[in-house]
């Protein structure tokens, strides 16, 4: 179980780094945090899993989407 989750983490990390669209990368990072939360839960740390799900998938995604939206050039 842990090995499968770590493999998913690896694939998602490579995708985040190699994808062209910044919005897609941010959403993939949120999915990455969600899988980290599942990994922490499997490793018997539900408190850390809750924090990771709330901060990683919620608040930091908000900040990243906001920043990407305001720094990207509008397509003409």
């Amino acid at each position: 179980m842990v090995e499968i989750l770590l493999l998913v983490h690896l694939v998602l990390a490579i995708l985040v780094l190699s994808i062209r669209s910044l919005f897609t990368a941010v959403i993939l990072m949120a999915i990455f945090s969600l899988f980290s939360a599942v990994l922490f839960f499997v490793l018997h740390a539900p408190d850390v899993a809750l924090t990771e799900a709330a901060v990683g998938a919620g608040v930091s995604t908000f900040l990243y989407i906001w920043i990407v939206k305001h720094t990207q050039k509008e397509p003409e």
């Binding site: 408190d47 709330a54 919620g58």
Partner: peptide, 12 residues
Amino acid sequence: PGGGFQGGVALA
């Protein structure tokens, strides 16, 4: 499981 910080971040 949970507590002040986790619940606060969920509220936020």
